[in-house]
């Protein structure tokens, strides 16, 4: 679909690519969410994060989220890009960009997309500490 950009990649994500994809003359605003790798969790220092994915299904689920966002909110275009592989502190695992005529719809769609991605898209991260590693959220 020409209003949706989905990407799952081992390359570095590009904020500019997401912005350029959703930018349009009919839009009055662009909302962008950027996830970043944090250097601590529950008081413990994190060294890096390793993202693995069930690739084909992850892409399908991201596509579904984008389609639902376009159907549910008055937005124009959406980009959902996610990285896989080993990421260091400050690296970017996820970018969601949404353009809309009016800002509220862009904010709402962006929040919906990141919240749903964290619930449904088959991607897992493993936190690497100085003294070991753990699958995030494995014991909810």
């Amino acid at each position: 679909m020409k209003n949706i950009s989905i990407l799952l990649t081992t390359d570095k994500l590009s904020l500019q690519d997401c912005y350029d994809f959703v930018d349009a003359p009919t839009c009055g605003g662009i909302d962008v969410f950027v996830g970043t790798v944090r250097n601590h969790t529950k008081g413990k220092a994190v060294k890096k994060l390793d993202f693995s994915a069930y690739g084909p299904m992850a892409v399908k689920e991201m596509q579904l989220i984008a389609e639902r966002a376009l159907a549910k909110f008055e937005v124009h275009k959406i980009a959902i890009h996610h990285a896989e592989g080993l990421l260091n502190i400050g690296d970017i695992p996820v970018i969601i960009a949404v353009s809309a005529a009016h800002r509220n719809a862009a904010f709402d769609a962006c929040q919906f997309a990141i919240d749903t991605l964290k619930d449904t898209v088959p991607i897992w991260k493993k936190e690497h500490f100085e003294d070991g590693e753990v699958w995030v959220n494995a014991h909810p």
Binding site: G35, F51, A53, Y54, M57, A58, H82, P93, V94, I114, L117, K118, D119, T120, V121, P122, I123, W124, K125, W135, V136, N137, A138, P140
Partner: peptide, 9 residues
């Protein structure tokens, strides 16, 4: 696919 709780993003 056997899918443990996801943790992307």
């Amino acid at each position: 696919a056997i899918i443990p709780p996801v943790s992307g993003g």
